[in-house]
Nucleic acid binder design. Structure first.
Lengths: 218, 218
DNA sequence: TTGGAGTAAGTAAGCACTTACTTATCATAC
DNA sequence: GTATGATAAGTAAGTGCTTACTTACTCCAA
């Protein structure tokens, strides 16, 4: 019963691919909690419910196990762009509905970051530890996000409704609010002592602030 | 000569206190670069230019060495409030010169964060590793910062010049811009590929955005 | 001559990783 | 249907090296 619900706890033999995937997910979870050097292969094996030798059958070194995260499907799920499969955002952009563009971007980001706490932790660990993962995420995701949001701002500047200023500074300010808010909730203020608001409230306020900051008239 | 410049490299005997301090500073530097579990006592000793036994004479365990950072003077230098010894900010607050209040807060924060990269890295490592340092910094510094800036916003709301909204959300948005910008410069975009601006430019733009976001009329 | 600064050379436990072996699975031959 | 054998999943018990930490000592200035 329970084994069916948590298919990771499956006891007995598994197919190679399934076991590999399970070890990888266990590793991601542990690396995100304790970092690379804070995680031991012994513990990965223990949590995955196999012997240490099995870990090394599937991944020849601990580093290779970390590197394999890059190629993992669920990792690339974390790198899903906001404009993909988001008809509401598409509509808002088409209609040049500035508030809903920024509100939607904010809300989506906050929800995703909240749901994938582990991925955010992993990303920060890998940035501090200067692992390729951080670099790749930056180049493949963040850089494109800057182009996308920056592009929209430039468009609205050409329309004459937004003030002339470096669009990328606006993007940095906006993403700063979002990431900092998530980081507070995940890392520093888990019990919401300083600020306890819903994602909707946060998205609404951040969208308002950034728009008033950049629009010529509200 | 060099030994005088870098008083840490002093060879030969030192007084106990001086050696203790030097080992501590070496440790802070290494912990901030590689995290707690990524740093070995052997390397701390090597970089400090003493035997490992000396490290354990001054600090009975590796953890105690980490904990000692909390009590270190230079750590509390990192925790220096923006309203201390900053007459320009004081003046701006007294005159209710909103732009200069926020511009000053931003510029000071950015300069300090840039100068003390190591401290920021240490703070993030300790937050991820759930070390007391992060908690203490949050309670002693961040919480008070929220009260201070939030208090100013509330004051200006009572004056009728700022919109009615949760002041703490504004503080979060503002600090988010600042910290995220520094984090980008330190961690992800060291060569300023995405955005290459001076601290003054950043402070000016961030102050403008947050003020337009919260003021009734600019 | 004594007390504190300093070290060389340990120790036990823990680390990433290996070896030599045992079990389960399943297609095929009978 | 059942025995068989190849193959892949799995492990217990290591390997040598590194880790945090200790011991038993030397050196030197006051």
């Amino acid at each position: 019963m329970i084994k069916d619900l948590f298919n990771c706890d499956h006891v007995g033999k598994m197919t190679g691919d399934k076991r590999r995937e399970q070890i990888l997910h266990t590793a991601v979870s542990l690396f995100s909690q304790r970092g690379f050097s804070g995680t031991t292969t012994k513990e990965i094996a223990r949590v995955a419910g196999v012997s240490e030798a099995m870990v090394f059958r599937h991944f020849s070194t601990k580093s290779e196990l970390y590197d394999a995260i890059l190629g993992d499907k669920s990792c690339h799920d974390g790198i899903r762009f906001p404009w993909e499969e988001n008809p509401v955002l598409h509509e808002a952009i088409k209609n040049k509905d500035d508030y809903n563009v920024f509100f939607n971007l904010a809300l989506n980001a906050l929800i995703k970051q909240q749901a994938d706490e582990n991925f955010l932790r992993l990303l920060f660990y890998s940035a501090l530890e200067e692992h390729e993962l951080a670099d790749r995420f930056f180049n493949e995701f963040v850089a494109r996000l800057y182009e996308f949001i920056g592009g929209y701002i430039k468009l609205r500047q050409n329309d004459g409704v937004m003030r002339e200023m470096n669009p990328r500074i606006v993007v940095r300010a906006f993403l700063g609010m979002l990431i900092h808010h998530s980081l507070n909730n995940i890392l520093w203020d888990r019990n919401r002592r300083l600020l306890d608001i819903t994602n909707e409230e946060a998205a609404k306020n951040f969208a308002e602030i950034i728009l008033r900051g950049v629009l010529k008239k509200v």
